[in-house]
Structure formats: C-alpha cells, structure tokens
C-alpha cells in the first residue's frame, strides 16, 4: 500500500507541471499584447513598459515560466490588475466560499443518489425504478444555469422563502443566514451528480445482487433486509466511491455557472469576472487553484478506492 501511495503521488508531478505550463500559456497565447489589453487603450507607453518589466514579460519565455512557477510555489501569485491586491489571499477566501457550496451539493447528491439507486436496483423494472431512471436522464440533461434561474423564480420570487443571490444578507454575519443562502445554489449544483450517482449505484447494485454470495446468503436463510444491507450494499458501493470522486470535475465546472446565476462570491465568479476584465493574474490563479484541487481530489479518490477495495493491485 505504501508503495502504491508513493507511486501515485509521484505520478502527479508531471501532471502538475503540465497543468502549470498550460495555465502559464493562457496569457502567452492570448492574441495581442496582454499588457496593453490589461491597461486599456489609453495607457501611456511608459506605464505599459513599467508593467511589462514588473511582470517580467520582457524576459525569454522559459525564464518567464520558471520565474512564474517559482512565485507560485513561494505563494506569490501576483497582483490583480483590477482589484489592486494580492491574488492568492483573495482567491483563497473565494475558494473557501465555493468549497461550502460544493461540499453541500456533493453531500446532498450522495444522500439522495445512493439510496435512490439501491431502491431502484432492488425493484428493477418497477414503476418507481422506471420513473427514477427517467429522472436521472432529466437530471443530467438540465442545464444548471437554467435550473438555477427556475429555482430563483419559484423559491425566491413566487414563494419568497429563500434568498436568491449572494452569500449573506447585508449587515448579517450569522451561520443561519449563510446556510439559507447556500440552499438554492447547492441544490442546483447537486442535480447532475445526484443523477449520475443514482445511475451508477443502481447498475453496481444490479451486478452485485446477481453474485453467488448473495444467493448463498439467501439460501442459508438470511433475512432479505440483511442480505441487501450487509452483502449487497457494502459491495455495491465500492465502485460508487470512484464515481463520487469523479463528480468533483462536474462540481468544479458546474460551480462556475451556478455562482454566476446566484452572484455567489466564489472562485468561479472571480474567474469569469477576471476573464471579462482581462485580469490575467486572477484568471491564471483561479484556473490553477481549481485544476490543482481537481488533481488532488482525484488522488484522494484513487487512494480511497485502493483502501476500500483490497482486490486492487497496487503494483500497476
């Protein structure tokens, strides 16, 4: 196991180097002179040259990359042009807000998706199963940005019971207020993963309940409830762990759209605002932060899977 962990962690190094290289290239590949774009058309030649020197853009490309990477590793992620402040602390705060949203959405997705999948599998081809599977397709066909607006209209405007934007009401700092603001965006974000988790749990469960050991358990007279819970669900959930881990990618992408709908001050909103304002340090920082957390979550998923399922061969 230790060897597997070390190997898996080491395999991240080339991927992370590639990720930083791609993020670095975002600004290099941008058409036109990024400095002029950032400062706007009316900037003086002097200011342009000053910023270019400050950002090290007068150096050869590989030197620029290494200097930028060095900065990233030391915690110096540059300064935002628009906001005139350090990128890393700003984005870290934003990322924390997004994390609330994603953790809540993923928990909701698991709490609904896993039981739904199990029940569907046990009652395969029943009316409930068919309805659930249609809902699954509906779930991952619904654009999150549209669902968000519908929830805003229904719960915010028509019923008036939940706040529809931001993270706190003006002048409020309480946890309850925060939770109320999180309900609609996290429900919106949860639908896609919920659908996928339900579908995967169902197919995994269907596979498991056809196994010999389930027949054995039934044959020895074990009550059906125990057969399902002790022998069925526990084995069926192993592959579901990976699927849940894979939802991180969906959450991190969907989060950007959801934050835009609900004007939720997370990393996605910072990223999009940065792109529209051509604030490259913010954009690079936000993309780097989201991509590396994705890489990290994938690592944790792999390790968790290996830990839960002893049949995994660590060597390969």
């Amino acid at each position: 196991m230790t060897r597997y962990v070390v190997q898996r962690v080491l395999s991240l190094i080339p991927v992370l180097i590639g990720v930083t290289l791609l993020v670095f290239l975002i600004m290099q590949l941008a058409p036109g002179d990024p400095v002029k774009i950032m400062l706007g058309p009316r900037a003086s030649e002097e200011a342009v040259n000053q910023l270019r020197r400050d950002m090290g853009l007068d150096q050869p490309m590989h030197i620029q990359y290494l200097r930028w990477l060095g900065g990233v590793l030391r915690g110096d992620w540059g300064r935002s042009i628009q906001l005139k402040r350090e990128v890393l602390p700003y984005l870290a705060g934003r990322f924390q807000n997004s994390a609330y949203l994603m953790v809540l959405a993923l928990s909701a997705a698991c709490l609904v998706g896993v039981p739904a999948g199990i029940v569907s599998a046990i009652r395969q081809y029943s009316l409930g199963d068919r309805v659930a599977m249609v809902l699954v397709l509906v779930g991952f066909s619904t654009p999150v940005f549209w669902l968000g607006i519908i929830l805003q209209i229904v719960f915010g405007l028509m019923l008036g019971i939940l706040p529809v934007s931001g993270i706190q009401s003006p002048g409020q700092t309480g946890t309850l207020d925060l939770i109320l603001h999180l309900i609609l965006p996290s429900a919106t974000l949860a639908t896609g993963p919920m659908a996928i988790i339900a579908r995967m749990t169902r197919s995994s469960m269907l596979e498991v309940i056809r196994q010999d050991y389930i027949r054995t358990a039934r044959a020895k007279g074990l009550r059906e409830r125990l057969v399902i819970s002790r022998h069925g669900v526990r084995n069926a959930l192993i592959p579901v762990v990976t699927v849940i881990g894979l939802q991180a990618g969906y959450l991190l992408g969907g989060d950007i759209l959801v934050e835009m709908v609900f004007s939720y001050p997370g990393i996605g909103l910072a990223m999009v605002t940065g792109i529209l304002a051509r604030d490259f340090p913010i954009v690079q920082g936000a993309i780097l932060m989201v991509a590396s957390s994705y890489v990290l979550v994938n690592l944790i998923t792999d390790l968790a899977y290996a830990y839960i399922d002893p049949r995994i061969h660590y060597g390969t």
Partner: peptide, 15 residues
C-alpha cells in the same frame, strides 16, 4: 487534469 468546463473556460480565457 482539468475539469471539462474549466478547460473550455481556460481556452476562451486565452483566445
């Protein structure tokens, strides 16, 4: 290594 939508956004951010 990038979530799909993030990669798309990164490309647009550049182009």
């Amino acid at each position: 290594a990038f979530p799909s939508l993030l990669l798309a956004i990164a490309v647009v951010a550049s182009l």
